[in-house]
Structure formats: structure tokens, C-alpha cells
């Protein structure tokens, strides 16, 4: 593991984050948006792991556990919102829920 430079891990994390972000912005399907959010969360998790490995600190791993917990909570709330969205608008297009302009 020591042979792998930190830039590689960080580069992968950044790549994943940008993929997730792009997906979040371009997709209208709420399900895909939630999946993109998961990708972004996990990319940050990866960044913590890589950083923790680099400096031989356990903080990175504990932060990852926190992020996993956050992701689980986020996913359940997000799916709940998705269900409500579908119930109200009969669609899962996120742009349909823009009535309040804010």
C-alpha cells in the first residue's frame, strides 16, 4: 500500500465526486439523483480513507463510519421523499416539485 501515492487515491475520489455531481445536476430522475448523492458521499469517504492511510491516522476511518451512517440516514429520508413525490405528482421528475419557487 505504501507504494501507491496519495494523488492516485485523491484523484479517484475527485473523479467519483465530479461524476456524482454531474449526475446530480444533469439527471431529472429523483432515483438517479439519490444514487448520485451516494456516489458523492462515498467519494468523500474514500478521500478520508486515503488521507488516513497516508498519515497513518485512524481519524480517516472513523470519519468514514460517520459518513456511512449519514449516507444510510440520507438514503432513507431521500427514498421517503421520493415516495411522497411520486404520490403527489405521479412522477419522479425532480423538476416537477418547483411550485414554491424557493
Amino acid at each position: 500500500m505504501n507504494g501507491l501515492p496519495i494523488e492516485y487515491g485523491m484523484g479517484l475520489a475527485a473523479l467519483l465526486f465530479i461524476m456524482g455531481l454531474t449526475g446530480l445536476v444533469v439527471r431529472r430522475n429523483t432515483l438517479f439523483i439519490l444514487m448520485c448523492l451516494e456516489i458523492m458521499l462515498n467519494s468523500t469517504g474514500l478521500a478520508f480513507i486515503v488521507a488516513g492511510q497516508h498519515w497513518h491516522q485512524a481519524d480517516g476511518q472513523s470519519m468514514f463510519i460517520l459518513i456511512i451512517g449519514l449516507a444510510a440516514a440520507e438514503a432513507s429520508i431521500g427514498l421517503g421523499l421520493l415516495l411522497q413525490l411520486y404520490k403527489r405528482f405521479k412522477t419522479i421528475d425532480i423538476d416537477a416539485a418547483s411550485e414554491m419557487h424557493g
Partner: peptide, 14 residues
């Protein structure tokens, strides 16, 4: 800018 479109908000935040 207050369009209510979530994706637009996300894009501007980032």
C-alpha cells in the same frame, strides 16, 4: 434565481 429547481440550486452551490 429563485426558480424552485433543485438541480439548479445544487449546481450553483457547487
Amino acid at each position: 434565481t429563485q426558480s424552485g429547481r433543485l438541480r439548479w440550486y445544487a449546481a450553483t452551490v457547487f
